[in-house]
Amino acid sequence: MSGRTQTISRSWTIVSYILLILFTLVTILPVVWMLYSSFKPMGEIMLHPLRLPTAPTWENYQKAFKYGNLVVSFLNSIFYSGLSTVSTVLLALAAGFALTKFGFKSSSVYFSLFTLGLLITVNSVITPLFIMETSVGLYNTRLGVILPYIAFGLPMAVLLSTSYIRGVPDALIEAAVIDGASYIQIFWKIILIVSTPVLATMAILNFLGNWNEFLMVFTLTSGENMRSLPVSINSFAGRLNEDYGLQFAALVVGTIPMFILYLVAHESVIKGFGEGALKE
């Protein structure tokens, strides 16, 4: 390497560090504060917001678990987010494959229809959705939560999967067709494999969106055994008489699993492409 490129990359390194450390500080400080504040009673948070807990207590957590029924909510959250994410990702990849590699004219119509879904807010369909679900008996069932989750996840997932699969070389598919594989086999054996990086991205984003979703679970279910974490947390985040300690404890419980998920899934986002299936 010449001296010039070395100095260039050194200045890039410095820029990188500054930018990244700034970002890190902005992100980490409030989270740390939330974490230790969750061990303080409300009175102490009000009177001394910054101070480390003088007598750390689990009281907020105990109260949050007792009133928020957090164990059940937690399992529900995993179930709602998990099953709908798996379904969304599979359905979206299948649709993405169909819309990009079959060459039918109707594809662009269906694609535009899916993109339209990106523009629709949950608020504008929630009441019709409630009426529909009560009339077909889906209200207050887990399926009644998962189906809307899938539907609202699809537009973005279809968009990402089509834009990714479009980049998969046609030659790969044509060769398989010549070898006598059916399209369904091609989907399972080739498309799913080569889409690993975008699959992981889609899954993470989808899971996150569903994990923090409030309005649909809240509206489309009733009863504590159906609630997800955000609904439980919201039940004690009333605006009139807030209890920060309790809220923080519940929020910690809601946020930590996401950190773990990221740490676990992160490898597949970044390394998923190492298989070499698509190195031309």
Binding site: I126, T127, F130, I131, T134, S135, F214, L215, F218, T219, S222, G223, E224, N234, S235, F236, A237, G238, R239, L240
Partner: peptide, 25 residues
């Protein structure tokens, strides 16, 4: 009593959907 507790604006938002479908607790 099978009770569902809710607070704030969200209480009203859901209750209105219930009222619109004429199925209230």
């Amino acid at each position: 009593l099978d009770i569902e507790y809710a607070s704030g604006e969200a209480f009203h938002q859901k209750f209105q959907s219930m009222a619109a479908s004429k199925k209230i607790p």
